[in-house]
């Protein structure tokens, strides 16, 4: 079965994010004065072949732990969904 995994990686709280601060300042300059904070991050889509959703999710977590995320500074959340819909859409 084909699955589509979604991974969002962000810096842990307390780790300074200069890009986020720069974007926040730019938003202020554009008069979005309500902006209190911006944190930047990374997003991955992983198309994968797996026996079932549980297995796909387990493998996706392993990918995060081994390569996609540096646990010293980053945290992540991820989930998988069947990928058939995406295939028919393309």
């Amino acid at each position: 079965m084909k699955f589509l995994g979604h991974v969002t990686v962000t810096l842990k709280r307390g780790v300074f994010d200069p890009q986020g601060v720069t974007v926040k300042n730019a938003l202020h300059n554009l008069s979005f004065s309500e902006t209190e904070a911006v944190r930047t991050g990374k997003y991955f889509e992983v198309v994968m072949e797996s026996a079932n959703p549980a297995e796909a999710e387990k493998r996706l977590n392993e990918m995060c732990d081994r390569l996609l995320v540096n646990p010293v500074i980053e945290c992540y959340r991820c989930h998988v969904e069947p990928a058939e819909e995406m295939e028919s859409a393309t």
Binding site: F16, P18, Q19, V21, T22, N70, V72, I73
Partner: peptide, 17 residues
């Protein structure tokens, strides 16, 4: 070396960006 775990810690983007 830090990514490999041969040294502790990590090198973040410079504070000034």
């Amino acid at each position: 070396l830090t990514e490999s775990g041969l040294l502790p810690g990590v090198l973040l983007p410079n504070r000034g960006g």
